[in-house]
Amino acid sequence: MDWTIIQQSLPNFVQGFKLTLWLSLVGIVGSIIVGIITSLVQYFRVPVLKQILNVYVEVARNTPLLIQLFFLYYAFPVMGIKMTAETCGIIGLIFLGGAYMAEGFTGGFNGVSQNQLDAGEALGMNQFQLARYVVLPQGLSLSVPALAANIIFLIKETSIFSVIAIPELTNTALDLIGMYYRSNEYLFVLVVAYAIILIPVILLLDWLERRVRYGAFGN
């Protein structure tokens, strides 16, 4: 392990680090928005839209991100739709992540017990009030574990962006390895960089899960 090589590569990695963080953030926020909307449409059984979104969730969940990206980045231009690599990356990540998040939220909403729904109904709530005051708050805290798993998953999925040459962390490392043929050092920095991002995220999400657990399960 040669530390001077590592030192020289740091500016490159910092750039990649920032980009990974940024793409993850946009991807996660976008996925949560798409996921909530999708699962609400499914929960309220909005006709037509629900069927369309069901298909979306299944297609997005059962195909690899890499192929989704290849499609956006290489095949779409043939149809006359050209986008930058980063746009493709973000669209791909939100396409995938939205479906995962939707599954998580739907799981949470369905996890709200029938007893709780009965109690709300017995108090005279209509469907909207039931959703707003019973299903949503409880379902969201029930879906936190799935949300946490998805957030970690999506951050790691940004590594696949390297295949369409977005200069995030993994792509940065691969580029450097290609140029200088020093794999040990660069892979070491790469792993450390992911650890720096993911360890705090994991700790934070564990804390969040503990915080909401009571709210959801303690009757």
Partner: peptide, 18 residues
């Protein structure tokens, strides 16, 4: 949990032989 699968593949691919 921390290392993306792509990176795992590269770790094996580069480090085992070299």
């Amino acid at each position: 949990r921390i290392v993306p699968t792509v990176v795992l593949l590269f770790l094996v691919y580069y480090i085992l032989p070299r």
